[in-house]
Design a protein around this nucleic acid. Sequence first.
DNA 1: TGGCTCATGTAATCTGTTACATGATTCT
DNA 2: AGAATCATGTAACAGATTACATGAGCCA
Lengths: 190, 190
Amino acid sequence: MHREEKNEMANTKKIDYAILGLLSHEPLTGYEIKQRMNTSLQMFWGASFGSIYPTLNILEKDGFVTSEDTSINARERISYTITTLGRKHLKEWLLIPVEKDEIRYETLLKLFFGTENGAIGTLKHIVAFEQKVNEKLEVLRASVTILEQSRDTEEEHLYYLLTAEFGVHTYEAYLKWCKVAKAELRKRGK
Amino acid sequence: MHREEKNEMANTKKIDYAILGLLSHEPLTGYEIKQRMNTSLQMFWGASFGSIYPTLNILEKDGFVTSEDTSINARERISYTITTLGRKHLKEWLLIPVEKDEIRYETLLKLFFGTENGAIGTLKHIVAFEQKVNEKLEVLRASVTILEQSRDTEEEHLYYLLTAEFGVHTYEAYLKWCKVAKAELRKRGK
DNA sequence: TGGCTCATGTAATCTGTTACATGATTCT
DNA sequence: AGAATCATGTAACAGATTACATGAGCCA
């Protein structure tokens, strides 16, 4: 196993860029950032409040964002806006090659060790997986339809569209695989 | 945003089960476990030495594995074997529904924020992604060919095969998407 | 002899989640 | 009135990586 090579400049914290990226489109509150992570970025990125709020403070201290009180009456609201410096910081990161793409699929882990569980037990996990994928695919298809209408007028939407299309391609492949896997396991499961 | 509901029994550490699962097939050293993670499990799970060795010790303390000195001359080697209790522990986990499947794709993050980087810059990330996928696909296809020959005689191989086929389906979908995305961005990039 | 692979392990550190704490507003 | 949502934040903890430390065996 070759020596894990030294990471020159690598492995910067990604949440900073995820947040900066979201703010590059429009000013947002921490709460709204969390919502974006749960919807638009949901399929390939996530973060909890417990990491979003502290990161926002650090980003401000570093001069990458500015904050503004946008409270409505007594309802507290702090909107963050990206600065020129923050944009530069984001752009620099966008320029460097991708360090890591990774998936952590418990479903595949349970599948890989399927012998211990048997064909029937493993089948259940695949069926559950299939159902989740079906739900997510529906949502993605809806957003593709919407984004297609504005991809030529709003530059950002082209990139959102490509991301959503990635999801559609991927999830459709998952479903095709589910069919094959289910058939194979049903043959064994008796 | 609905209250994140309380996790009754959930969110057990997964590395324990990944290791127990590998040991359910055959006794292995910590070093060999790492190798499996870098090859067979590579596409959906990973771990470093810094988490494998300590976990192995805990697993032994808990009675889920036993260790045996299998040194060759002065070359230290400690092989771990799963116990009946360990098998039971693994089986119980395999029975419960999957908690989380997640992907963390930096490539998609950089794509999503493509406006800041421009079509040409974003294209580079896709080309790099495509190349990596091509390499991995080749390896996966080779293992599918091998596993197909033994899926009916060796039960475990059926599950390895299904996992590898998942990878093939997924990666083929990625490549199809790369084509579409590249074409779209090339149209913009001038 | 030098470099790679085999082999184990620990300490410092990083990153992030979970659970808690608090409170306003809106919807039914 | 009560539930859900909007909204911010912190402390404790979990989980894992990275870098370091150490050394044997093998191959060119």
